[in-house]
């Protein structure tokens, strides 16, 4: 009895909210609590829109198993945005430097770099070289895919590991070998 009452209450509140016209067979059952409301097309549409805005949203990144594929893909965009943002910041900075009293000429930057301790130099070079080398090699990986090569699970992993190895070697060379 309790469950039925609850179900009825649910149905009532739902119908009041949705105003879905329901077929009522008066001869077989009476449901005095159920009400129907006449709505215009515009009202019905606005109710529909309001309902569809309540629909559940797909879960995001956090529910997926960490895998090389999508981790490297994300890293490609993150490194790309970081590098491009650096280029833009420097480019805009170089334009406004004379008006803002900044010194961004190559001579000033080189002098500033020379004055830094070795640890800071390594940190700065790592922060620039690692994303640059990764994005460069992973870009070549993407271009390989664009020619319809290595487009298999095996190929994606093989090229992925190759990019990681090349990035380690290349960035290591740029940081410590140059």
């Amino acid at each position: 009895m309790l469950a039925r009452t609850a179900a009825l209450r649910l149905a009532t509140s739902a119908s009041a909210r949705t105003t879905v016209p329901r077929a009522v067979f008066a001869a077989t059952q009476t449901r005095s609590t159920a009400t129907t409301t006449k709505t215009t097309d515009a009202e019905a549409y606005s109710i529909l829109v309001a309902q569809r805005k309540q629909r559940p949203i797909s879960p995001h990144l956090t529910i997926y198993q960490p895998q090389l594929t999508w981790y490297m893909s994300s890293l490609n965009r993150i490194t790309g945005v970081a590098l491009a943002a650096s280029v833009y910041l420097y480019g805009i900075g170089y334009v406004i430097a004379p008006y803002a009293g900044l010194h961004l000429e190559s001579a000033s930057l080189a002098a500033g770099m020379a004055a830094l301790p070795i640890a800071a130099k390594i940190a700065i070079k790592s922060a620039i070289a690692s994303p640059f080398v990764y994005h460069a090699f992973n870009g070549v990986r993407h271009l390989t895919w664009d020619t319809a090569r290595e487009l298999s699970i095996k190929g994606v992993y093989r090229t992925g590991y190759a990019v990681i190895a090349l990035t380690t070697v290349g960035a290591g060379y740029l940081i410590f070998g140059v």
């Binding site: 280029v87 480019g91 805009i92 170089y94 334009v95 000429e105």
Partner: peptide, 17 residues
């Protein structure tokens, strides 16, 4: 932003190294 950066690039190429 891109227009400013391209102008900055031009400035950099003509005035810097």
């Amino acid at each position: 932003g891109t227009a400013i950066v391209l102008y900055g690039l031009y400035e950099f190429e003509t005035n810097d190294v």
